[in-house]
Design a binder for these strands. Structure first.
Lengths: 143, 143
DNA sequence: CGCCATCATGAAAGTGATATCCATTGACAT
DNA sequence: ATGTCAATGGATATCACTTTCATGATGGCG
């Protein structure tokens, strides 16, 4: 899975005539081996300890590149930071966001998707994408 | 309806020991008699022509106040601006957002809400609120 | 190899929207 | 009418990006 994404990214890069660099390799590794909803800041800080020579701008640009390459997706959960999540081919999911600890869980629900399609249709609307987020307290924070 | 909200806001203000001012009255009137999804900027510009003496900061603070008072709600639709929509008591709705013209339609769907509750329950999650937005092309822009 | 046209990098500066500061003004209980 | 404390608005600060620019790498070509 990590391998598949690395390959996909490498292909995207060569198609666009972009270069492979140490920084990009490091950032990709770190991104793939981390939590699914990192912000630029978080990833930057995570890298900073082992690779103090990687700049914020590079992390920023590289994450954008991941998004363009289709291996990451930009998401907003209302905390003022853009987060990047891993994209797995053909898979779609929505989110449960804990308002206390910030923890994000994912879920999938076919029935909801179907109902969304019906709503769109009844409004003559053509859906490109959607977002569904449930905010509240996660199981741990309820106690 | 406008009357009810004015009253609700007045009550909120006096409970908090806050003062009634010309500016707040004007901003509330303008907010209530406008489109349901205004940004600060939009409301500020709308007011500017008739009331050039009202500052941006006042519009900003007053909208926040509306949100605290429960007569408005802050929303993000991904265009980089916070929008304020009217809150009608006990009513909840979701949104269809046109990615071409920016038009926002509202809809309600009980069945979807019910399924959301089930999802939350199965994760031990306690829902406080949710957001559901369908992005795509509105009926007009499809042509 | 060595060249060199390009692309990439990182520090710093720029942006745009939101948030706060502060000197002045206004509201309202007494 | 007056004192007190909140409100106002212009200006400034903040925050999270986003872009600039001088310097450093990359990799195709001879």
């Amino acid at each position: 899975m990590k391998r598949a994404k690395k390959k996909a990214f490498a292909e995207f890069m060569s198609q666009r005539g972009l270069k492979s660099t140490k920084q990009r390799d490091i950032i990709l590794d770190s991104f793939l081996s981390s939590d699914r909803h990192l912000s630029i800041e978080e990833l930057y800080l995570k890298l900073r300890s082992k690779h103090p020579n990687i700049g914020y701008a590079t992390v920023y640009r590289t994450l954008k590149l991941f998004a363009e390459a289709g291996i990451a997706r930009e998401m907003q959960f209302g905390d003022g930071q853009t987060r990047y999540e891993h994209v797995s081919e053909g898979e779609h999911h929505d989110h449960l966001v804990c308002t206390r600890c910030g923890h994000i869980e994912e879920f999938e629900n076919e029935a909801i998707e179907k109902l969304q399609d019906e709503v769109a249709e009844s409004h003559g609307f053509l859906i490109e994408r959607h977002r569904l987020e449930l905010y509240g307290l996660c199981a741990t924070c309820r106690k």
